[in-house]
């Protein structure tokens, strides 16, 4: 009585994206690697995930991923976040790749707004989901102009912006997404990672790829590349301070903390990186963290004020 629709029985390619688009994205990723910090425009086809929910990251992940990859995805540091779960299921569904929560075990990690606390090695790729790839957008709304500014390395207005905040508040007020100078040439948005993570972009062993789907831009930071947060001689970049604060679950510090409030309005701190926390709590091991001078200061202070914690 009612006709059926044979044509609705659709199958999808491995990793969902068609091979032509994958080739385009791959070519542009190579270009991005060749000009660290420069934003390469790409076609950015629609995905079955909403714009602003990680399409750029997915484009990169799905163009790069192979059968043997072990895939991990975090959202705001957590493997368990709803959107991370959704994207992990999607990637698994279209690739049948092994997925993992273990930072060290993963070969390909997609992230929204965090770099894992555990140091990444030269066999790993970290893919950032980027909402706004243009670090200059806050000081210049027109793409035509920001393109020229990058082309001519004309970053005076960016410096002014940081300087003004300093004049007004006595400090650089940029929170997450702290602008960085890459390879001494391009100012880049590291995506809205906390400042805590920014030093880990510098001279790392792993490859960093950035995908901004809605804005249709790809960029990259290759391993062993200079990535320097913008700062003045007498006003320095600083990471978030969690002075004297310890995680209420693991009893330790030296990692980026979340503030958790209860119904009474009291709050406690918990380590943000869910895999790092699991390893501390379940495995009773502290994974190898990144080494940078900012973190070292934090760890030194923590060790100086050591009190008997489990």
């Amino acid at each position: 009585m009612i006709p059926t629709f044979k044509k609705f029985d659709t199958q999808f390619n491995f990793a969902f994206i068609d091979e032509n688009t994958k080739r385009e994205i791959r070519r542009k990723l190579l270009k991005a690697i060749c000009i660290p910090g420069y934003q390469v425009p790409y076609s950015s086809p629609e995905m079955p995930i909403a714009r602003g929910w990680g399409t750029g990251g997915l484009h990169v992940t799905l163009s790069v991923i192979g059968k043997d990859d072990r895939f991990k995805i975090i959202d705001q540091g957590s493997d368990a976040s709803v959107n991370a779960c959704n994207l992990r299921d999607f990637v698994h569904r279209v690739t049948h790749c092994r997925v993992t929560f273990d930072t060290h075990e993963a070969t390909l990690i997609q992230t929204r707004h965090r770099i894992p606390e555990e140091q990444l090695n030269d066999g790993q790729i970290l893919v950032f989901q980027v909402p706004q790839p243009e670090p200059l957008r806050a000081v210049e709304r027109y793409e035509t102009k920001t393109r020229e500014m990058h082309g001519e390395a004309d970053y005076a207005r960016m410096w002014v912006s940081l300087y003004e905040a300093f004049v007004r508040y006595g400090d650089i007020m940029q929170g997450a997404g702290y602008p960085v100078m890459v390879n001494g040439r391009h100012i880049m948005s590291p995506s809205p990672i906390p400042r805590w993570d920014v030093p880990n972009l510098n001279q790392s062993d792993c490859l960093y790829l950035f995908g901004a789907g809605r804005e249709k831009r790809l960029y990259a930071v290759p391993p062993h590349t200079d990535v320097v947060p913008l700062e003045f001689e007498d006003v320095k970049f600083r990471i978030e301070q969690f002075s004297g604060i310890r995680c209420s679950m693991s009893g330790t510090g030296g990692a980026f903390m979340d503030e958790l409030y209860n119904d009474l309005g009291d709050f406690r701190h918990v380590i943000n990186d869910s895999d790092f926390l699991d390893k501390l709590v379940e495995r009773k091991t502290r994974p190898q963290q990144w080494s940078n001078k900012y973190l070292q200061e934090v760890l030194d202070e923590m060790n100086a004020n050591t009190d008997p914690q489990p």
């Binding site: 602003g52 929910w53 705001q76 976040s81 906390p194 978030e240 503030e259």
Partner: peptide, 24 residues
């Protein structure tokens, strides 16, 4: 599609981003 996606992405958690600003 782009406008809807991005305005709705505000529903995603932003607590790390927020914490970074809060700290400042």
């Amino acid at each position: 599609i782009e406008a809807m996606g991005f305005t709705n992405h505000l529903k995603l958690p932003h607590y790390v981003t927020f914490q970074s600003g809060l700290n400042n």
